[in-house]
Design a protein around this nucleic acid. Structure first.
Lengths: 151, 151
DNA sequence: TATAATTAAATTGAACTCAATTTAATTTGG
DNA sequence: CCAAATTAAATTGAGTTCAATTTAATTATA
């Protein structure tokens, strides 16, 4: 009788792959709705933090979004071009670049409110499954952070 | 008494954001181990399909990986450069570009076998949670595909 | 059978992602 | 106080990622 061996190099036995694929597919669902706001997904989540915080350093934003200045600097410059934020160095510490939301940025929030219901991600999973997925993803993120911190 | 309103524009109320962040963080865990094989994550999952299929068209590969020719063409050219695959047009239908694994590509598999245990993703969640996450991600992927198909 | 429609890859261009390096400002230790 | 270490952003370069377009081959149809 042939022994059945678990092949860790099969795509279907990976947890990382469906995570990677699902992430891109879900972001893709946002695109048509974000196009209407002339925002990319990365710009959109950066604006989400700005709508919450009003003012934020690159470092803080990076911690919230799990992104570094290499990604964020051009994203924030682009949002500045569009007039949604303004950027300036902190007076007390000139190393820190602060990003602050503008009135135009606040106005964008009203239009952006329509995005989540239109994307309708919540219809892709049952309420219970969504809650469970949410819990698992944040557990995973927390464990990765904890693991790296202890390195 | 102040009414508590669910704010769909808060980062913490999104399901997409932790998916996007967790995906990137988990891929990041692979990097040091894949560096040793001189592979990127995208090249690695393409090789996974090649180890399974031996021969594959760009279209088939794209269906497996949820990627299009715009992404795959340079990835496959890079794998060809490294000698892990060879590429040629299908005789019956010259539109189809076939990718075939080489002996060197097969040899790489032996080294690659060490990657999944070294990454140790399985320690980031309990067995039960991993199984549940796996189920939820594939459900999500299936529902997105179904949704788009019916558009 | 010509022509039109379809299909598969490749190309192009804009934007993101990240590691590594650089620059500038601040903090720390001698 | 001053040199060394640290910190925050910006820059650079390689490699995705994707929509849109182009090219070439095949299939369908009038």
């Amino acid at each position: 009788m042939e022994e059945k061996i678990f092949d860790s190099l099969k795509l279907e036995n990976q947890i990382c792959f469906p995570l990677y694929a699902a992430s891109r597919e879900v972001v893709k669902l946002y695109r048509p709705h974000l196009d209407a706001l002339n925002l990319t997904y990365t710009q959109y989540i950066a604006m989400m933090v700005m709508w919450e915080e009003k003012q934020c350093s690159v470092k803080e934003l990076g911690k919230r979004l799990y992104l570094d200045s290499g990604t964020l600097t051009p994203v924030l410059k682009s949002l500045e071009q569009k007039g949604y934020v303004r950027r300036f160095r902190m007076e007390d510490d000139e190393r820190v670049m602060l990003t602050e939301i503008t009135d135009k940025g606040e106005e964008l929030r009203e239009k952006a409110k329509e995005v989540p219901p239109k994307v309708g991600c919540r219809f892709l999973l049952s309420i219970e499954d969504s809650i469970e997925l949410y819990r698992l993803l944040y557990t995973l993120l927390g464990n990765i952070n904890g693991k790296n911190a202890s390195d």
